[in-house]
């Protein structure tokens, strides 16, 4: 069973995406981190196969989390899928620079497709 770490502070979204993974009969276990701090911790402890990362969160932002993951040799190989409702180009550029695998706008994609996207990324690696 593969692990997807979802870093997201909105419980409603966490609920929706977790259910999507469940219903898709995917080979994924969803680990949830409800803020950035927890995200960094879990990325190191759980050694997930992929990280789905929100940007705008209380306290530590997604950018900080991404930086931290890519800095640590232990975690830097983990593909990170940035999943946010921030649409500004400079943020997109920034996360790409920091080594994010994908930059996806939440409203552009439905939960089923995000599951497929995550599977694809994991298979690629």
């Amino acid at each position: 069973m593969k692990k997807v770490l979802m870093v997201e502070d909105d419980p409603d979204q966490v609920f929706m995406y977790t259910e999507a993974f469940k219903v898709a009969d995917s080979d994924f276990e969803v680990i949830v981190a409800k803020d950035g701090e927890e995200g960094i911790k879990k990325a190191k402890e759980e050694n997930p196969d992929v990280v789905v990362l929100d940007i705008l969160m209380n306290g530590t932002s997604g950018i900080d989390v991404l930086e931290e993951i890519k800095k640590d040799p232990k975690t830097k190989k983990i593909p990170v899928l940035v999943f946010t409702n921030l649409v500004q180009e400079h943020i997109k550029k920034k996360v790409k620079e920091l080594g994010a695998e994908e930059f996806i706008v939440k409203t552009d994609i439905v939960p089923n497709d995000i599951v497929k996207k995550v599977e694809k990324i994991v298979n690629r690696h």
Partner: peptide, 27 residues
């Protein structure tokens, strides 16, 4: 504002998509 508007929209849209593709039926 765009972020704040998109956030509820993404939840509404995402959830409804699951109703639409009938995946909720398995829930």
């Amino acid at each position: 504002a765009s972020h704040q508007l998109r956030t509820p929209v993404s939840v509404i849209l995402g959830t409804i998509s699951m109703f639409k593709d009938r995946s909720v039926l398995r829930m």
